[in-house]
Amino acid sequence: MSKASILIIDDELQIRRLLTITLHGDFVVSEAATAKEGMLMAASHPPDLVLLDLGLPDENGHDVLRHLREWYNHPIIILSAQTSEEDIVKALDAGASDYLVKPFRTGELLARIRTALRKSTTADHGPVMTFGNLVIDFAARKVTKENVTVKLTATEYSLLALMARNEGRVLTHQHLLREVWGPSYVQESQYLRVFVAQLRKKIEADPNRPSLILTESGVGYRFSGT
């Protein structure tokens, strides 16, 4: 299999160099310093993934994201120096696949890139997914932990199934509420909190130190299968 291609759109030369050094072993890397250049490069040689800095000098990063999403269907990972949760949620809602707040660890970056690329190549996971000693059988709507059936309510199951299918990917509170409870529930975050706590009690080895359902503070949740 040929190397996946990644386009970095970031105005800071040092960051581009760091990213290129981090990535060029496993990926084909190209760089753009401005939004305009980035859009041109993405259009002429569509990459398998875009790393997009939200703070570009020539155009608002949210607008770049929106314009790219009009035709570009591969993953876009947002890099941002702004820690505002609102900003992150806005980018995720606008179609970003994931986000990393500067400063980030390179290990974290690589993990996010791999998850995003895997997501885009294998949309279908098949009927059974295994995460350590937790097995989800989507065909039978059955969950077992250490070979013992976990009794889940219908809502708990829907929530778990949705998160597991998007393993490694951050899902915003609004997204989870809309998908599991319905569009009129997007503001009812207390439901989500309660059900996540219940689910953790049933599937986590230590519900106080979750290793499967991870909290992305102020943004949403991320299911981690590793």
Partner: peptide
Amino acid sequence: VRRDWVDIRELIHRCVQ
């Protein structure tokens, strides 16, 4: 200030972690 529903138990354990 942006208020939303918070599970304090989860938050404290996460802080400690």
